[in-house]
Amino acid sequence: MALAALAALFLLFSGAGAAAQGPPPQIDLTDREKAFIEAHPVVTFSDSIWEPLAVVENGTYQGVFHDFFRIVSAMTGLAFKFEPQGDSRNFGKVLAALRDRRIDMIDGTGKTADREKYALFAGPFLRFPLAIVSRDDVMSGSFFELQGKRVAVASGSTAYEYVRDNHPDLDLLVVEDPTAALMAVASGQAQAMIENLAVVTYGIRKSGLTNLKVSGLTDYALDIYSLVRDDMPELASILNKALAAIPVWDKAAIMAKWLPLYAPGQATARGGAAAPDREIAGPAGGEAGKAAKVVLNRREREYLSRKGALRYCVDPDWPPVERVDEAGRYEGMVADVLGLLTERLDVDVRLAPTASWS
């Protein structure tokens, strides 16, 4: 079914989706919040295609956000009705619909100064680094290296607003959506693009753009919030409570479903995971799969010999970048990199568990 035909369709989150593990947690609601739910049992929302976070495909709305809000629906009794804006590719149209109060909320996006003028925020409930993508033959791993190069960004996106406001000297090519930005880089119209790490890694893999790579991560962490009409403070407070109450195991299951690089156990197989005080193993695959060793000088070897095991701390709940699972295993993209480093340096590293990033 064509995306343009979706205008007459809607999806209730209380339908199909990723199964939660056990009953949803209970949340305490005020009398005003309960009255809001009784008066507004169906909440309208929209989003643009932002895969894998927001997926519009074959007439249905799915993705990471869908599965999060399916749990919110079970906790609150609210139903969430998807109302596409145009062909669901231009996020600027989604923002305009919220600003004009034609929808009640946007399920997930970033917080910016401009959006604070007309929206309330619930969350954050996810966080991703902002990544730089370039072709294999281009070095563009930092904002400094983007100077003098054309950089593609999706119209209306948080990435666009961040770069526009904080790096006004960059030469921006504003395109319709993240997929168009990836294609612009692959075809040579732009030398790089900037977008949420989860979105670009998913997009590169899905599109088969083998000449593209994630060439760097910016120092900007994109926190994901729900945006709510500024005349619905009760809805914002309900979502704040519900999103904060989603169990970590449900979050992990959702991320594993939509981001294969985050699948439980994958980091272990590739050499990235370790339980507390357990050595990180090297990649599987025998001699052919082993990484080349780094040659150290005598002083470096003596230092490592004296030092013994290197202890490290991580953010225990920052998927897909890194997390510690319920069994104490360290997983994620950084875990995979650490696994390669330990094999190449031939060192013993041990996780020192912490309850939180702070």
Rank of each mutant, 00 (worst) to 15 (best):
L126M: 14
V200C: 06
V337Y: 08
E38P: 00
S305R: 15
I238D: 07
L12D: 14
L9M: 07
D177C: 02
A273W: 00
A8T: 11
A119D: 07
K111C: 00
V199K: 04
G108M: 01
N240F: 00
N240V: 06
L182T: 12
G141I: 08
Y160K: 12
G339K: 00
A119Q: 08
A198C: 07
E326K: 12
T30M: 03
V295L: 07
I254E: 03
V349A: 06
R89C: 08
E145L: 09
A96S: 13
D348Y: 02
W318N: 13
A275Q: 08
G92H: 04
G282P: 00
Y61F: 11
L197E: 05
F65R: 06
A292H: 12
A352C: 09
Q266S: 05
G148H: 01
A281Y: 06
D231N: 15
E176R: 08
T354P: 01
T201E: 14
E343F: 02
Y202R: 10
N166Q: 11
I194T: 08
E302R: 14
I204T: 10
W318D: 14
D137Y: 08
A159L: 04
Y312F: 15
G188T: 09
Q62P: 01
L126R: 09
A335R: 07
S142P: 03
K251E: 14
R164Y: 08
V248K: 14
L310Y: 02
Q85M: 12
L172S: 03
S48C: 07
R329M: 11
L6W: 05
L9G: 02
F125G: 05
G208N: 09
A35N: 12
E145M: 10
R329P: 02
L12N: 14
